[in-house]
Amino acid sequence: MKDIREITCINCPLGCTLTVELEANEVIKVTGFQCPRGEKYARKEVLDPRRSITTILPVRGGDLPMVSVKTDGDIPKTKIKELILALKGIVLEAPIQEGQVVVADVCQTGVNIIATKTIQKQTP
């Protein structure tokens, strides 16, 4: 049984429309991509969809009340909610450097949460 699926590549703003042909749960053909990342994305998206997550965490004693953070790799789409709930209640301490790991191995995904903004300590 051939299964043909159309998906939109989310790797970059071009948003290529990709056509994936599947047979017995295996990708046999991908068309429509304009770069290698598109082909890779299509194969992953139909069998094991993953996403990077960006969000914010509160900071105590910083020049801003919130720091923006992201996962340093992608996580299974099905784990997004679990990850967001796991971050609930976490409060960080200033100062924070961009790139600093603020939560390691979140939800046993092997992925870390890292800061994407530098927060200085607030001088009172």
Binding site: S52, S68, K70
Partner: peptide
């Protein structure tokens, strides 16, 4: 850029997917 904490910046300039704050940094 400070409030655009999502991904997708810099693919063209830095060949890397950055968040807004990282791009401005």
């Amino acid at each position: 850029l400070n409030q655009c904490i999502h991904n997708g910046f810099g693919l063209h300039t830095f060949k890397q997917e950055l968040t807004g704050p990282e791009y401005s940094e």
